[in-house]
Nucleic acid binder design. Structure first.
Length: 572
RNA sequence: GGCUAGGUAGCUCAGCUGGUUAGAGCACGUGACUCAUAAUCACGGGGUCGGGGGUUCGAGUCCCCCCCUCGCCA
C-alpha cells in the first residue's frame, strides 16, 4: 500500500466555474483519487477555494456584502456543487483560513531569513475615490498611440501596443469611473526567484516522465528572454493575508497583504492542516503528508491543473518550498490539461457562454457529465465540447452499451429463473474466454489509470463493458434456456457477477451508477478484481438481486436543440 | 511579432525511439439475433496522414520552408 497525496488546482472564489474548469483539474484529480482508493492505497485528496485578491473584493462590493461574508457564502456554494459532481475531497478548504495565514507568514519569514526577499520601491496608480491602488487592468484611458478611448493600463486592445498606466491620457478607474487618480510611491516585497533558477531547472530536468505540456511551459519561463524573473509577492489591498515575518510585524509593510499567487498554493498545505483540525487530529497527522522529516518521505504527491496554472506550480511555488530550506514535500508528478472549447469557441465566464457547473447538474445527473468530460479530457491538445458529441456519447456509451447490458441481464434472469443468483451448470470454455479477455483488459485499464491516461482509460473501460455484450450475444442464453436450462443458469450467473465487477471498475468514472449496480446485485464488496476468475464467482448462489431502474436515459434531439440555444450566450 | 501545442477517415481522437496492406469509437451500409433502454453482435465502404521540398533502402513518424487553428507572452 502506498501513500498518495493529491491536490487539484484551487478554483477562484468569484462565481461558479464552467465545465472547462472542472475537467482541467478537479475532475481528473477525483478520478485518480477514487481509483487509488479502490486499489487500497492511503489517499489524501485536498482542494480549496482561492479567496484573496481584487476580483473577490469587487465581486463582494457588487453583491453588496462584506468580502469575508461573500467568500464564506461562495465557498459553500462551490462546496455544494462539488458534492453534486461527487468530487471526493477529503477536505475542501479555504485559502483565507487561519492555517493559511500562519503558514504563508511562516514561509515569508523563512525566505527572508535565507536572503531571498528584497524590498522594491515602485510607482503605482492610486485612486483617491476608490481608496485603493489600481492594478493595471483596472485603469482605462485614451491610448496615446491610436486615440482609442478604452485602452487598458497594460495594453491597448485596439492597436495592441503595450502600455504603462502612466502613458494613458485621461486615465480613469474602471471600478468607479473616477478620474481622481494620482501616482504614488509604494514598497513591495519580491521573491528572488532568479537566485533559485538553477536549482529549479535541475529539479524540472529531473522530471523526465512529466507531460510535455508541463515541462515545456516550465522551461519556457526559465529560459525565455532574460530568464526567470523575481516576483512581487505583496499588494496594497485590504483583503488578504497581512504581511508579517512569521508572527512578528514586518517594518515598512504595514497595511499590505501577500499577493494571492503567493498564498494560494500554500493552501494545499494549509488545507491539509484544516483537514486534520476538522478531524480533531493533531499536527503530526498533516505533517506526515508534507514534511519529509516527519513521515512524508514515502508519500507520492500528484498535482492536477489547467495549463494556465503550470508556471506557478512548476516555478513559483517550488521556489517558495525550495527557498524555505525546510523539508517540505515537492510535487512528484504534475498532470496538466489543455482547454476545453465550447461549440466552436471558448467557454466564457464573462459572457456566460458555455455550460456552468450548476447549470449542468440542473439538466442531467453528474455521471453523464463525468463520463463525457473524462472520456474527452483535453490531454494532448485543446478539446471541443459539442452538444451532438455529448448526446452521441451519453446515448451510446452509457445508455446502450452499459445501461442496456445491466437491463437485459437482470430482466432476462428474473423472467427465467427468478430474482436470485441461479445455481445451475458450470462455467465452460466460453466463460473461460471471457475471463481471459477481461483479465488482460483490466490489466491494461489499471496501467492507464496509474499513468493518468484519462481518455485511454475511458476507452478501455468502454471496451470492458462491450465484452459483456459480446459474451451474451454469442452465448445466447435466451436460446440455450430452451434446451439446457442449467447451462443458461451458469451464463446468467456469470453475467450477474459481471455487473458487480463492472460497478467496481466503473466507480471512478461514474460513482452513482456504480453504486446502483452494486446495490442491485445485493452486494457491498468493492474489492478490486485482481483475480477476475474469483471475482466472477463472488455473488453467492441464491442471493437476491433486483432489476434497477434504467441506469441512464437517452438525450433526445429536442433536448439537445433546446440546450444548444439555451447555453449559447448570456447566462440567465 | 516571439513561443508552446496542434493540423490523420463525415465527426471526436490513437499512432513510443522512422519499417509489413495507416487504427479506434461514433455516423453510414449489409447481415445475424430478439434477452434488453428500436438495444446488441458480426462484416463492410470510407483517409495520397495541412502544402511543398529534403534525408533514407524505407517517413504520418526526422530536417527545412510555407499555410491554418488554439493558447501563452511581450
Amino acid at each position: 500500500m502506498a501513500r498518495i497525496l493529491i491536490t487539484s488546482a484551487i478554483p477562484y472564489i468569484n462565481g461558479i466555474k464552467h465545465l472547462g474548469n472542472l475537467v482541467g483539474s478537479q475532475l481528473p484529480a477525483d478520478l485518480f483519487a477514487r481509483y487509488m482508493r479502490a486499489r487500497g492505497h492511503e489517499v489524501l485528496f485536498i482542494c480549496a477555494t482561492d479567496e484573496h485578491g481584487t476580483p473577490a473584493e469587487l465581486a463582494a462590493a457588487k453583491a453588496g456584502k462584506p468580502v469575508d461574508a461573500y467568500c464564506a457564502e461562495m465557498h459553500e456554494v462551490q462546496a455544494e456543487i462539488a458534492r453534486g459532481f461527487r468530487l471526493s475531497f477529503d477536505h475542501f478548504g479555504r485559502s483565507s483560513s487561519q492555517r493559511n495565514h500562519r503558514l504563508t507568514q511562516h514561509f515569508a519569514k523563512a525566505l527572508d531569513d535565507n536572503g531571498l526577499i528584497r524590498e522594491v520601491s515602485e510607482k503605482q496608480v492610486y485612486s483617491i475615490d476608490d481608496g485603493r491602488f489600481l492594478p493595471d487592468r483596472y485603469i482605462e484611458g485614451t491610448c496615446p498611440n491610436c486615440g482609442y478611448t478604452s485602452a487598458r493600463g497594460d495594453q491597448c486592445d485596439n492597436c495592441t501596443k503595450q502600455l504603462d498606466p502612466t502613458d494613458l491620457i485621461n486615465p480613469r478607474s474602471t471600478i468607479s469611473g473616477s478620474t481622481n487618480l494620482e501616482v504614488r510611491e509604494t514598497k513591495h516585497l519580491y521573491l528572488m526567484q532568479r537566485s533559485l533558477r538553477d536549482k529549479l531547472e535541475a529539479w524540472i530536468d529531473s522530471k523526465t516522465d512529466w507531460p510535455i505540456l508541463t515541462t515545456s511551459i516550465a522551461k519556457k519561463w526559465l529560459n525565455d528572454g532574460d530568464g526567470l524573473q523575481d516576483r512581487g509577492i505583496t499588494r496594497d489591498l485590504h483583503w488578504g493575508i497581512p504581511v508579517q515575518k512569521g508572527d512578528q510585524p514586518w517594518p515598512g509593510m504595514e497595511g499590505k497583504v501577500f499577493y494571492v499567487w503567493f498564498d494560494a498554493p500554500i493552501e494545499y498545505i494549509a488545507g491539509t492542516a484544516e483537514w486534520a483540525d476538522a478531524k480533531g487530529l493533531d499536527d503530526s497527522a498533516w505533517e506526515r503528508w508534507w514534511r519529509t522529516d516527519k513521515g512524508a518521505s514515502d508519500v507520492t504527491y500528484y498535482q492536477f491543473m489547467g495549463k494556465d496554472n503550470v508556471p506557478f506550480h512548476t516555478l513559483s511555488f517550488p521556489a517558495t518550498i525550495l527557498g524555505s530550506g525546510e523539508p517540505w514535500k515537492l510535487v512528484d508528478y504534475l498532470k496538466s490539461f489543455n482547454y476545453l472549447n465550447y461549440d466552436g469557441g471558448q467557454f466564457s465566464t464573462s459572457r456566460g457562454r458555455g455550460v456552468f457547473m450548476d447549470q449542468a447538474l440542473s439538466i442531467l445527473p453528474s455521471d453523464y457529465w463525468r463520463w463525457w468530460l473524462l472520456s474527452h479530457a483535453p490531454e494532448s491538445s485543446d478539446a471541443e465540447f459539442t452538444w451532438e458529441n455529448f448526446q452521441a456519447s451519453v446515448n451510446k456509451d452509457l445508455a446502450d452499451v452499459l445501461g442496456n447490458l445491466v437491463s437485459r441481464v437482470t430482466k432476462f434472469a428474473v423472467s427465467k429463473f427468478g430474482a436470485t443468483v441461479p445455481s445451475g451448470g458450470t462455467f465452460g470454455p466460453q466463460e473461460a474466454a471471457v475471463i481471459a479477455d477481461l483479465g488482460s483488459r483490466i490489466t491494461t485499464y489499471s496501467a492507464l489509470m496509474e499513468e493518468m491516461e484519462v481518455r485511454k482509460a475511458a476507452a478501455e473501460l468502454r471496451g470492458i463493458w462491450v465484452v459483456g455484450n459480446e459474451y451474451l450475444q454469442s452465448a445466447a442464453p435466451w436460446t440455450v434456456v430452451k434446451t439446457d436450462p442449467d447451462r443458461a443458469q451458469a451464463m446468467v450467473r456469470l453475467a450477474l457477477n459481471l455487473i458487480r465487477v463492472y460497478a467496481i471498475l466503473s466507480r471512478p468514472f461514474i460513482p452513482d451508477a456504480a453504486a446502483a449496480m452494486m446495490s442491485a446485485m445485493g452486494s457491498d464488496d468493492w474489492t478490486w478484481p485482481e483475480d477476475i476468475s474469483a471475482a466472477l464467482r463472488t455473488l453467492p448462489v441464491g442471493q437476491a438481486f433486483t432489476v434497477p431502474e434504467n441506469l441512464f436515459r437517452k438525450i433526445t434531439d429536442e433536448e439537445r436543440a433546446d440546450w444548444q440555444t439555451r447555453f449559447s450566450g448570456i447566462r440567465v
